[in-house]
Simulated scan of single mutants.
Amino acid sequence: MRYAQGGGLTDAERAVRERIRLQAVVRFEAGETNREVAAALRVSERSVERWRRAWRERGEAGVLSQGSPGRSRLSETQIARLDRELERGSLVHCWADQRWTLARIQTLIGRIFHVSYTVEGTWCLLKRHGWSRQQPARRVIERDDDAVEVWRKETWPWVRGPRRSAVPGSSSRTRPGSR
């Protein structure tokens, strides 16, 4: 099921739905029709048709809950290892620079753990475990911060020029002849 506001079922609600599907399996085995099962369990016939198809194809396991869709596919030990690998840096993992991008992290997870994530899923995984989105400050290597500060304090005020003081009637909003 999809929920517009990003919600979903809690574990308790998921368990209730699973119990209803298991009751349907008992009724399937007893030979009841989809209409009878739907009426008895107060669900739609369409749902009963889906459950019956899943039950025919995979047995009782076909109607069991798959769990929360948001659960991580990595264990806590794997996540701890991923943290260590990210701390080592991207150069260690054969990338040309020190930047970690989501695509690179996605590739790293696939290489190490043989688990595939989407770029968005990679971001959710990282955010869930305390990583933040950072943009590196692009500065030239030759930058001299002291010289920049001196220029900003001494040269820039001279280049910018003196500020005009506000005097009555000097507003740029007044039109000529509008007085």
Score class of each variant (00 low, 15 high):
residue 139 R to N: 07
residue 115 V to Y: 01
residue 155 T to L: 05
residue 157 P to N: 03
residue 146 D to G: 14
residue 173 R to H: 12
residue 25 V to F: 05
residue 101 T to D: 08
residue 117 Y to G: 02
residue 49 E to M: 08
residue 101 T to H: 10
residue 88 R to C: 08
residue 151 W to M: 05
residue 144 D to R: 13
residue 82 L to M: 09
residue 128 R to E: 09
residue 17 R to C: 04
residue 115 V to C: 00
residue 28 F to S: 06
residue 134 Q to E: 15
residue 38 A to F: 13
residue 82 L to Q: 09
residue 61 A to C: 00
residue 9 L to V: 01
residue 171 S to K: 05
residue 35 R to Q: 07
residue 4 A to E: 13
residue 2 R to C: 05
residue 1 M to P: 09
residue 128 R to I: 02
residue 8 G to D: 06
residue 162 P to K: 09
residue 138 R to N: 05
residue 104 R to D: 10
residue 36 E to A: 13
residue 132 S to G: 13
residue 160 R to M: 02
residue 5 Q to I: 05
residue 7 G to D: 07
residue 88 R to P: 07
residue 95 W to L: 11
residue 137 A to V: 15
residue 17 R to V: 04
residue 120 E to R: 14
residue 143 R to P: 03
residue 102 L to M: 09
residue 131 W to L: 02
residue 12 A to E: 15
residue 19 R to D: 08
residue 37 V to P: 12
residue 55 W to V: 03
residue 59 G to Y: 03
residue 24 A to T: 06
residue 62 G to P: 02
residue 24 A to K: 06
residue 30 A to Q: 15
residue 58 R to Q: 08
residue 66 Q to T: 10
residue 103 A to F: 15
residue 97 D to T: 11
residue 73 R to D: 12
residue 78 Q to L: 00
residue 113 F to L: 02
residue 140 V to K: 06
residue 170 S to H: 14
residue 126 L to T: 00
residue 55 W to T: 03
residue 138 R to W: 08
residue 171 S to V: 09
residue 155 T to I: 10
residue 142 E to Q: 04
residue 139 R to P: 03
residue 87 E to G: 12
residue 151 W to C: 03
residue 146 D to V: 15
residue 100 W to K: 01
residue 125 L to S: 05
residue 52 R to G: 06
residue 17 R to T: 03
residue 105 I to F: 01
residue 102 L to V: 15
residue 167 V to D: 10
residue 12 A to C: 10
residue 43 V to K: 02
residue 58 R to C: 01
residue 55 W to Q: 01
residue 33 T to Y: 09
residue 52 R to P: 05
residue 72 S to I: 02
residue 126 L to H: 01
residue 10 T to W: 12
residue 145 D to N: 12
residue 44 S to A: 11
residue 124 C to Y: 15
residue 121 G to H: 03
residue 139 R to E: 07
residue 15 A to Q: 10
residue 80 A to E: 12
residue 147 A to W: 14
residue 69 P to A: 06
residue 92 V to S: 14
residue 123 W to M: 09
residue 72 S to T: 11
residue 86 L to V: 13
residue 79 I to T: 13
residue 59 G to D: 04
